[in-house]
Amino acid sequence: MSSRIGHPLAYPLRVTIGALAVLTAWAPFADPDQLSALVVVGAGIVGYSGYRVAVALGVVGHRAEGSSTTVTVRRVRQEYQLVSRSWLELRGGGEDRWLPVYFTPELIGFPGGTALLSERQIVLRPEPGGTEPAGGRHLEFRVLPAGRARASEPPGRLVDNPTRVDPEAETRAATTTKTTRRLLLDAQPAVAAPFVALLWLYVMGGGTGAFVAAMCVAAATGTWLGAIRGSDPS
């Protein structure tokens, strides 16, 4: 696996495949009840991932679009419990909206500007006047929504992007986009996996093998959920 992420959906889809691989690996050792549980979890992963991809690609509306509307935008990073996500604060039409987006390295150096919203895509363009990165790269770039827009601020601590381009933005981007770093951050909810496994044993019974299997499935599912919802490693 590459240590860097390119397309915004590449990382969450890889984690999704990894989670399904964990479920598949335990299937041959499962009894009928355990196999049914694995099928239900697998179906939930596939269905929810499909919905998220449909929203990201514009198949399902994110409710922030007009008919090719341009609005003022800035990026904020949400820190809430174990969640870290990127949001776009959209200002236009007399109302503010917040839209979660999948992380892409260009967001780190984005100082605010305008967003072109349509049914199928969201394109960000920095404000002119010396705010573009050196060499003029990333003058505009596309982002993918990671959910529906909301009319109220996301919960938790919101960290604003600087209004000037950080000269170290490219270096930070190279560090934050490493797959190992992103997996470690998304795997934080996996600390609850042993407790989920104990609950499974209490309800369904089983021995050491069932405990290990339930713990692996819970850890993989928790990591997948963080990734598919659009975690931000920055």
Results as ranks from 00 to 15, higher is better:
residue 168 E to D: 15
residue 144 L to P: 00
residue 151 A to K: 11
residue 141 F to V: 07
residue 157 R to T: 14
residue 183 L to W: 08
residue 159 V to F: 09
residue 177 T to I: 11
residue 183 L to F: 10
residue 174 A to E: 14
residue 150 R to H: 07
residue 170 E to W: 09
residue 144 L to W: 12
residue 183 L to K: 01
residue 132 E to W: 07
residue 179 T to A: 14
residue 127 E to A: 14
residue 152 S to T: 15
residue 131 T to Q: 09
residue 150 R to N: 00
residue 177 T to V: 10
residue 134 A to I: 11
residue 166 D to F: 01
residue 183 L to C: 09
residue 137 R to K: 10
residue 134 A to M: 11
residue 173 A to L: 01
residue 175 T to V: 12
residue 159 V to L: 15
residue 148 R to F: 12
residue 137 R to S: 11
residue 158 L to D: 04
residue 177 T to A: 03
residue 125 R to G: 04
residue 149 A to C: 04
residue 163 T to F: 05
residue 183 L to D: 10
residue 165 V to Y: 14
residue 154 P to T: 04
residue 124 L to V: 05
residue 142 R to K: 14
residue 152 S to G: 04
residue 163 T to E: 13
residue 127 E to S: 14
residue 169 A to S: 14
residue 155 P to A: 13
residue 140 E to K: 07
residue 176 T to N: 08
residue 124 L to E: 01
residue 169 A to T: 03
residue 167 P to S: 07
residue 155 P to N: 05
residue 170 E to Q: 13
residue 143 V to G: 00
residue 148 R to A: 15
residue 143 V to M: 03
residue 129 G to I: 06
residue 181 R to T: 09
residue 134 A to C: 02
residue 153 E to M: 12
residue 176 T to C: 07
residue 142 R to M: 15
residue 180 T to E: 12
residue 138 H to E: 12
residue 139 L to M: 09
residue 161 N to M: 09
residue 136 G to K: 07
residue 164 R to M: 09
residue 149 A to P: 04
residue 143 V to Y: 00
residue 141 F to E: 02
residue 173 A to I: 03
residue 135 G to N: 06
residue 181 R to K: 11
residue 174 A to N: 07
residue 140 E to I: 00
residue 135 G to W: 06
residue 172 R to S: 03
residue 155 P to K: 09
residue 175 T to C: 05
residue 125 R to Y: 00
residue 175 T to S: 09
residue 135 G to E: 05
residue 134 A to N: 06
residue 180 T to P: 00
residue 177 T to G: 02
residue 184 L to F: 08
residue 172 R to G: 13
residue 131 T to W: 06
residue 165 V to R: 12
residue 157 R to L: 15
residue 162 P to G: 07
residue 146 A to S: 09
residue 164 R to N: 08
residue 136 G to L: 05
residue 134 A to W: 09
residue 165 V to P: 00
residue 128 P to G: 06
residue 164 R to H: 14
residue 140 E to W: 08
residue 138 H to V: 09
residue 133 P to K: 05
residue 160 D to A: 15
residue 181 R to N: 04
residue 137 R to C: 01
residue 131 T to R: 15
residue 125 R to F: 01
residue 151 A to T: 15
residue 181 R to V: 13
residue 127 E to K: 11
residue 154 P to A: 02
residue 129 G to R: 03
residue 139 L to F: 07
residue 172 R to M: 10
residue 144 L to K: 01
residue 165 V to D: 02
residue 129 G to S: 06
residue 159 V to D: 09
residue 184 L to Q: 08
residue 129 G to K: 02
residue 154 P to F: 03
residue 184 L to H: 03
residue 125 R to C: 02
residue 126 P to R: 14
residue 142 R to E: 15
residue 124 L to S: 01
residue 183 L to M: 11
residue 132 E to V: 12
residue 178 K to W: 07
residue 184 L to N: 03
residue 153 E to L: 15
residue 126 P to D: 03
residue 178 K to A: 13
residue 174 A to G: 04
residue 130 G to N: 08
residue 160 D to Q: 13
residue 126 P to G: 08
residue 177 T to D: 12
residue 182 R to M: 14
residue 139 L to H: 13
residue 182 R to P: 00
residue 156 G to K: 04
residue 178 K to Y: 02
residue 181 R to A: 10
residue 175 T to W: 13
residue 170 E to I: 05
residue 172 R to T: 03
residue 140 E to R: 13
residue 158 L to W: 04
residue 176 T to R: 10
residue 157 R to W: 10
